[in-house]
Amino acid sequence: MVNIILYTALGFVALALILTIIRFLIGKSVVDRVIAFDIMTVTSIALIGIISHFTDRVIYLDISIVYGLLSFISVIVIAKYFEKGL
C-alpha cells in the first residue's frame, strides 16, 4: 500500500522534472534557464528523499544536503555575475 502511493508520487516528480527541462530548453532569457535549473535541483532533493526510502539507505539524505548546498551557492554566484561581473 505504502509502495503503491510512493510510486504514484515518483510519477508526479518525473512529470515535474520533464516540465522544468522543457523550460530549461526553450528558455528565451538566461534568467529563465537559471530558474529552471534551481527548481530542478530542489525537485531532485525530494526525488533523492523518495529513492532513499526505496533503497533503505540513510546516506542518500547526506548526499541531498550537499547537493542543495552546491545548487544554492551556484545560483548566488550566477546572480552576482549578472549584477557586477566576477
Binding site: I5, L6, T8, A9, L10, F12, V13, L15, A16, L17, L19, T20, R23, I39, T43, A46, I50
Partner: peptide, 12 residues
C-alpha cells in the same frame, strides 16, 4: 509525500 509531489508538479 504524495501531496508534496503534487505541489512540486503544480510549481513546474
Amino acid at each position: 509525500t504524495l501531496i508534496g509531489t503534487i505541489f512540486l508538479f503544480l510549481g513546474s
